[in-house]
Write a protein that binds this DNA or RNA. Structure first.
Lengths: 134, 134
DNA sequence: TTTAAAATAGTAATGATAGCTATTAAACGT
DNA sequence: ACGTTTAATAGCTATCATTACTATTTTAAA
């Protein structure tokens, strides 16, 4: 019943690009990188494969305030830190806190399956730069 | 230096609409509601005022996976619960956990200013419906 | 009341993403 | 190895949420 998935050169390269960066790139950035290996790859193909890989649970789509999505080659749930100075989105090396889900279940009665946690602030590097300026 | 803000009938009504619901509506829903009071209000005016109110800290823009934003009339930081069955986004009555921010600061060295926490699962009501079916 | 400029309605433009179609190429059975 | 089937592709065009533009109106301060 379920549609079969075929591994194509395009899909493999798009996945490699995502796996090889921690910068949470946009579809457009992935497209630019992919063109270095397949010059006539179509932007539509990039979007189709990003959605495809998302459905397969191989990557994650991250939706932030801006008008475009970012993609994360690490499909395991993990927390992010957004630097308000340089705009980077950094992965946090921090265990997933299941207690938070338990807390919600107990206080609200809803059945919680997962959660998403994003932090905002100023990253180490930008902090150092700011201190030098003072 | 900063641009002055003027209170207009349109802005007041848009704010009232948002303050009067907990459903985290889209810009289009706000537009439909506003038209009941000002039939010839422009959709652009709705968007301009939503952005305006967001800048003023009166409301929050929520960006989820879909292609459109939702708006929250409660500008205080609070957590949300997304029901994967009915699609509703519910406010959680749960204190903001500042310890999480401290935890990130200690483990990563970044300066954390705020965080955002979203839960996903099946809400009470949908759970009841599912149990009846079984 | 006068006046400067902020906000508006109506419209066109933008930009990320999805849809369409003829063609190409995976991967299965033979 | 070689057809055969059909998913995936390139190269478009279409869509739809949001923003920009402009002449006009409205706010609020002097």
């Amino acid at each position: 019943m379920s549609k079969k998935h075929r591994m194509t050169k395009q899909k493999r390269i798009i996945m490699e690009i995502l796996r090889g960066t921690t910068s949470h790139p946009t579809a457009d950035w992935v497209y630019e990188q992919a063109r270095k290996q397949i010059p006539d790859i179509s932007l539509g193909t990039v979007y189709r494969n990003l959605n495809n890989l998302k459905e397969m649970g191989e990557i994650m789509e991250l939706c932030y305030g801006s008008s475009f999505s970012r993609y994360d080659g690490n499909p395991e749930n993990h927390y992010h830190f957004h630097c308000l100075e340089c705009g980077r989105v950094l992965d946090l090396d921090m265990p997933i806190n299941r207690d938070l889900e338990k807390q919600v279940e107990e206080s609200s009665g809803h059945k919680v399956e997962r959660h998403r946690l994003e932090f905002y602030g100023v990253c180490c590097e930008c902090n150092k730069k700011k201190q030098k300026q003072e």
